[in-house]
Nucleic acid binder design. Structure first.
Lengths: 260, 260
DNA sequence: GAGTGGTCTAGACCACGCC
DNA sequence: GCGTGGTCTAGACCACTCA
């Protein structure tokens, strides 16, 4: 029998799900009910073909639903597994006027403790600034910027790509141009130059990654990223740094504490 | 010719892209280069089949790449179109100690101006609290909560689902239990009760939506959401509200300003 | 080497949109 | 009514993983 057999192909109709969606629902239920847990293997293409009497493409499509939802990951040559979610907690502003506010009230768990966080790739160049850096750093035409690119790992897994921009005139010849910025890092060096960051603005977006970001973060299908544009300002109100971060959304919970 | 023809099926090999990825690359280029712009129609399945001499499934797969990346949307019976991105800007903490910090430095554009923002669905119930509300509001066993559910529209488009929880003992019998909370909204009513919010904690995650969230926000494939858990605290440090928001990631830029 | 997911072909019927 | 995307079948070869 080819094509629709009289029951299928009615995607739009009330109460009638396409076959692949029905299969996906049943698979989802085994995950959300706790029957299958983090890292457990789901039934594969062949198993679904046999169990439901469908073609390979239909079985694939059902698995794709879960993968695109971020509930499962496919491992070529091995199988499809329940996705794990064990995030880090990243704090923006965390200073509060009183104790009792903000502490001990975490809603989502995040076990940051004891996990190392370090860059495995650092490249530094001086170049003409991209548009975003011109705006954020309020550069004049002809100004150049120092660019620091890093990739950060936690337990061997890449979780963040970062690109920082500094006005070249401000930091040229300092350790900010070195791979190793010394004790206290970039902000300590900026402070020594009389430009200690005093205030920050962060702009956040979430979206699907570009192919380069997918590669750099080793992301599975259906894994969004969080793009953070962070501008640091000195005491005088002048911007001293633009930090453009791309976070694996599955690896992060972001927290901001602030007053009314 | 069946199956691989000697060139295809080498997904893993260095420098060799599967056919559908090569097609996707070319399509992506027409978008990122500006050749095709917001809302323009992309070549459809039939066009790709003819142009590249591939099967329908392969043409579909190529389009799927762009759709999953959030670069395109499919409209059944019509075609595949370049996705639009016209976000709102949502401010968390925006108070800064000095002028010059944070203002006029926006990196990503967001035209919030003149767009109405209003709920089209409001439901209110009293019930036993879910786990997240127990933790955030520090409830005792047996405590009940008032739950306000809303969906917010901008220009007729749903952009946010929100569920707020209040300790039932705190707000029972007040206008917070009404669909119309009166001038100043919920926070004005809390202030009248002597529990004006004085501090906030926001925890953010980005992920793919659940089927319910997809329906409620009318999201296309490949569209992530931002989940915000916002806890409001009174002057005395006691939590007075948990607000659980789910934002269409394509409709929002989130901004936080804070001091070092 | 057996089993897995990844890619691909060549067909088919359907619901939907738009003119 | 025609073109669109959505679903589905029945096959095939491939690269990869793991015992």
């Amino acid at each position: 029998m080819h094509g629709s057999d009289g029951e299928s192909g009615r995607g739009g109709q009330e109460g009638r799900l396409p076959v692949y969606r029905r299969i996906a629902e049943e698979l989802r239920a085994t995950v959300t009910s706790g029957q299958l847990r983090d890292g457990d293997q789901l039934p594969g293409e062949n198993a679904l073909m046999e169990r439901y009497g469908v073609a390979r493409a239909t079985a694939r499509q059902a698995l794709r639903v879960l993968i695109d939802e971020g509930l499962a990951v496919a491992r070529r040559g091995s199988g499809v597994y329940v996705r794990q979610f064990r995030p880090l907690r990243r704090h923006g502003s965390r200073r509060l006027a009183r104790a009792g506010w903000g502490s001990g009230t975490a809603i989502w768990d995040a076990d940051t403790n004891g996990r190392t966080y370090a860059p495995d790739q650092v490249t530094i160049v001086e170049q003409d600034p991209p548009e975003a850096a011109v705006r954020a750093l309020r550069l004049d035409p002809g100004d150049r910027v120092l660019v620091r690119r890093r990739r950060y790992l936690v337990e061997g897994r890449p979780v963040q790509l970062a690109i920082s921009y500094y006005p070249a005139g401000l930091v040229a010849g300092t350790r900010i141009a070195d791979a190793d910025t010394g004790p206290g890092g970039v902000y300590a060096r900026l402070a020594e130059l009389g430009h200690a960051p005093a205030a920050f603005t962060e702009e956040l977006r979430a979206r699907m990654p570009s192919p380069e970001e997918r590669d750099g973060l080793d992301l599975p299908d259906g894994n969004p990223v969080i793009a953070v544009m962070r501008t640091a300002f000195g005491e005088d109100g002048a911007p001293v740094e633009l930090n453009e971060m791309v976070l694996d959304a599955a690896s992060y919970i972001l927290q901001y504490d602030f007053l009314a």
